[in-house]
Design a protein around this nucleic acid. Structure first.
Length: 886
RNA sequence: GGGCGUUUAGCUCAGCUGGGAGAGCGCCACCCUUACAAGGUGGAUGUCACAUGUUCGAUCCAUGUAACGCCCACCA
């Protein structure tokens, strides 16, 4: 038995809170989020980008979840075996920083006071307490991943993957250790990768400094933006072609203040045009100078400590940070008469993307991954469309990164993360990478071994993520987790800001280790901004909290809003008013159901195609078109189109017209027609619930529970409508004309200042006999929808006292006892006439143009001709009407 | 400095490699009509950034200009 409810049992507004509670646990406990057997033989899987454990859900996550969950639900309904893989990220730097701050605030202790082991324990404790907040928030959004697959990037399985990958890359010689100049973050006291450095415009100065030449009273002038690094200079460099300095090449200069003697060398790198054409070379603190130093075998002098203060090379400046050191040093130069000039200068300076402080280039021993080969393969895979980006234009960003890849600095001087599995024997100095925790040297058996103290860049484990989630590299686990079914995954959904960080690295690792791409598609969604287009940030206080919105408007409304704003755009400016608007839409669906629910007693589940009436054929045709369009737009990640399509079907077709046109039948006496109409209403409504489900899972599940049969399962696993079974073009055409005519009657009513309940008399002039008989048979509908009391079609004389609206196919006259505001009406008609005439002129001109007739394709000519004919009719009819008013 | 992108109604954006511009929200007016005031009906608004070119025809193609945005880059 179907559940039946009468109108007054159902509240007028939809209660989203109850439905959300009820249905999420039903889905989860009922196993609906788990992969089920495929009806299509296809599989569909998405790896959720793991949010940081430090995280609170923000709108970016909400958008992530919405689009991914909509896709998962869509393909599940289409019959693919689907898997949505959830997890969280340990986010090395961010998490360590949060806990360090917490410990400092609460106990006034640093991580060093705790010691490595104890501090890591502290982070784990913190993670257990706060790390799962985000899961609850994901549930609130209605996300339906298979929670059994939940993985944390520091889980043993993930560590196993990381170590496996590391060891094999190490053994292949791709991971190497080198003294190299790196981006040093003095706050984190760690190296960071090139990708983590942001260049920010900074106002500084160019200082011109005299360097005396040894054995002469002469000097050179050198320009620099960082005078304090003079103390680390090990050469002066000029361009070999620079005639001004030819005679100095090979001579010796004296570095001011510290009085070090350094050679004057020549290198093509130096730009003769810039500054004085003389470059001071500081291999220890400048990326280019480092390269020059290598070419010329210059010594490297490191003048900085790890915390960014000057070391003993700083002399008097020892212990000072760079900025005060600079000021003091400049003063000294001035006193010595060596400062020639200071000019304001704006330049770009690297800052840490986490710490936001100035990055110091520093030479230190770090681990690097040689990515040259891997990058090439990752590049190729997208170039030849093995992996495709949506929208395609993002491929450029991806290519830009992989075309000239720099080797990746993967070591971080942190404690929180995957520790580098490289050991050194203290006895025989043997170094090796180990899959598991080592306890003795494999060569000399000594137990006095030491593991490298550094941890890996967080993105190292992230790069392996899709593989890790599915059990790689353990064969047994891969089988359990159905690696072969779900890898490569179907689509990666993410923001454009991590194409380099993440997408490229996953591509590289996956191709390297599995010879497969990690995902077939990459859908890059917009960045959520506030309604003014500004990035949401704590400092601006313009963030919109998803949970607050869910509480206020419901998860379905938020999801629909985000999906409707998501296509191929790069920004999504979110205004809470829009969420409210879509909340209203959800409520509309609810009320449409309330209407139907009171007429279900005679509805059955199927109907005979032969007995359908005109309006039924029409709405079924509209449904068919909607189905086709929904499937097409979902396949291309055009969620904006999908949402618009279903919105317009529900609102503008189903509610505004079909329900309205059903009222006379349902309240009438023809029981056969009643039964048929309620059956069709129910059929359409059930279909639209399925179409809508991926975006608004809760309300559709709620309403489906009232409309389903006992044998049917939840809507979340019903078959998604795919075929357009209904196509009645004549009914679409006639209905279109009916809608247009009713609308024009309504317009005339408003222009005559009539109240909604006032009844009117209408004359229609229709030349097409088919349309004429169609209108005659629809008299009752005109009466219902426009309160037409008296409808006359083609009377011999046009009504004298009337206002009129000429359409292409029909002239509409609204008869008035005493025509008020006739002047207004004439003005409107004249305006209309001018518009139509202008348009008509354009068509006439075209048809008179021999070149148009020669070149334009036939179908265009036909269209122009028919438009011209229609417009001429309208012109004629407006002119006649105007004449009658005179 | 290099590259990419954007510029269409007050706002957010659609516009299928060319045939005279659309949606949602907002706005205005009138309505508590028996699914829904979280509602109904109707309405207004655009030199499609600018200039030139190609074409019978340009919002769409080409070139240039301007504004904005993003990414990359070591110019001392």
């Amino acid at each position: 038995m179907e559940q039946q409810q009468s109108l007054n049992e159902l509240p007028k507004t939809y209660d989203c809170e109850n439905a959300e509670k009820k249905w999420y646990s039903r889905w989860e406990n009922g196993g609906y989020f788990k992969a089920r057997p495929s009806r299509t033989g296809k599989s569909f899987s998405i790896v959720m980008p793991p949010p940081n454990v430090t995280g609170q859900l923000h709108m970016g996550h909400a958008l992530d979840i919405t689009t991914q969950d909509a896709l998962i639900r869509f393909y599940r309904m289409k019959g693919h075996t689907t898997l949505f893989l959830p997890g969280t990220d340990h986010a090395g730097i961010a998490t360590q920083a949060v806990v360090e701050k917490l410990v400092w605030d609460q106990e006034k202790k640093t991580r060093h006071d705790y010691g490595r082991e104890a501090f890591i324990k502290k982070i784990w404790e913190w993670k257990e307490t706060y790390g799962n907040i985000i899961n609850k928030q994901q549930r609130a959004m209605g996300a339906g991943p298979d929670w059994n697959y939940f993985t944390f990037t520091m889980d043993p399985s993930s560590n196993e993957a990381v170590r496996h990958a590391f060891v094999s890359l190490y053994q292949e010689g791709l991971i190497y250790r080198d003294e190299y100049i790196v981006n040093w973050d003095t706050e984190l006291q760690s190296a960071i990768s090139d990708a983590e450095v942001e260049h920010v415009e900074v106002k500084g100065a160019i200082y011109k400094i005299k360097y005396p030449l040894k054995g002469t009273s002469d000097h050179l002038i050198v320009a620099t933006t960082r005078p304090e690094t003079v103390l680390g200079d090990t050469a002066i460099c000029v361009n070999p072609k620079d005639e001004r300095y030819q005679h100095l090449i090979g001579k010796t200069a004296i570095v001011p203040v510290c009085n070090r003697e350094v050679p004057i060398i020549a290198d093509e790198y130096v730009d003769m045009e810039f500054g004085t054409g003389c470059l001071k070379v500081t291999p220890g603190h400048d990326f280019n100078d480092f390269e020059i130093g290598k070419r010329h075998s210059l010594p490297i002098i490191n003048i900085l400590n790890k915390d960014g203060t000057l070391n003993e090379y700083g002399g008097e400046l020892k212990g000072l940070k760079c900025k005060p050191a600079r000021e003091k040093f400049v003063k000294t130069l001035e006193e010595l008469g060596l400062l020639v000039d200071v000019q304001d200068h704006v330049h770009m300076v690297g800052h840490g993307d986490r710490s936001k402080i100035v990055i110091e280039p520093l030479v230190s021993k770090q681990w690097f991954l040689n990515v040259q080969e891997m990058a090439k393969r990752a590049y190729e895979a997208v170039k030849n469309d093995t992996t495709r980006f949506f929208p395609k234009s993002w491929e450029n960003t991806y290519f830009a990164w992989l075309k000239e890849p720099k080797n990746w600095c993967i070591s971080r001087q942190l404690w929180w993360g995957h520790r580098i599995p490289v050991y050194t024997c203290q006895k025989c100095q043997h170094e090796w990478a180990d899959q598991t925790d080592a306890h003795s040297c494999p060569q000399c058996r000594a137990t006095n071994i030491q593991q490298d103290p550094d941890v890996l860049d967080t993105w190292f484990s992230s790069g392996l993520w899709p593989m890790t989630m599915l059990g790689w590299p353990d064969q047994k686990r891969m089988e359990e987790k159905k690696f072969s079914t779900f890898f490569p995954t179907s689509v990666l959904v993410t923001g454009y800001d991590i194409i380099f960080f993440w997408v490229a690295r996953m591509m590289m690792f996956s191709l390297k280790f599995t010879n497969q791409i990690p995902f077939h598609h990459v859908y890059i969604h917009a960045i959520v901004r506030d309604k003014m287009g500004r990035k949401m940030s704590k400092s601006l206080g313009n963030g919109i909290d998803p949970l607050e919105m869910i509480q206020k408007y419901g998860a379905d409304a938020l999801r629909f809003t985000l999906a409707a704003g998501s296509g191929y755009n790069r920004n999504l400016n979110l205004d809470p008013e829009r969420i409210e608007g879509y909340r209203n839409f959800i409520n509309k669906v609810w009320n449409a159901y309330r209407f139907i629910s009171s007429h279900l007693s005679e509805a059955s589940l199927s109907f005979d195609k032969q007995t359908l009436d005109h309006h039924e054929k029409w709405i079924l045709s509209e449904l068919g078109q909607t189905i086709v369009s929904m499937n097409a737009s979902m396949a291309e990640y055009r969620f904006d189109d999908s949402c618009q399509t279903i919105y317009s079907f529900v609102y503008d077709k189903f509610c505004s017209w079909f329900i309205e046109l059903s009222k006379p039948i349902l309240n009438g006496t023809d029981s056969q027609a009643k039964a048929r109409r309620s059956t069709v209403l129910k059929y359409i409504f059930r279909q639209l619930l399925k179409l809508l489900h991926p975006f608004t899972p809760y309300i559709t599940e709620e309403v489906w529970s009232y409309l389903k049969t006992d044998a049917e399962d939840l809507v979340t696993i019903q078959a998604y409508p795919e075929e357009n079974e209904w196509n009645y073009p004549e009914d679409l055409d006639l209905m279109g004309k009916f809608v247009e005519t009713v609308s024009s009657i309504r317009f005339l009513r408003t222009s005559a200042n009539l109240k909604p309940r006032d009844e009117v008399s209408i004359c229609l002039y229709v030349s097409d006999p088919e349309l004429q008989s169609y209108f005659s048979s629809n008299k009752q509908n005109f009466s219902e929808l426009a309160r037409v009391r008296n409808l006359v079609i083609n009377p011999s004389e046009r009504p004298k006292k009337s206002i009129t609206m000429p359409l292409g196919h029909t002239e509409v006259y609204l008869v008035l006892e005493n025509v008020a505001n006739i002047e207004e009406h004439i003005t409107r008609l004249n305006k209309e006439l001018a518009k139509v005439l202008a348009e008509l002129m354009k068509y006439n001109k075209k048809l008179e143009n021999p070149k148009f007739m020669e070149n334009a394709p036939e179908e265009v000519q036909l269209e122009v001709r028919s438009n011209q004919a229609e417009l001429s009719l309208r012109v004629k009819s407006i002119q006649e009407t105007l004449a009658r008013f005179k």
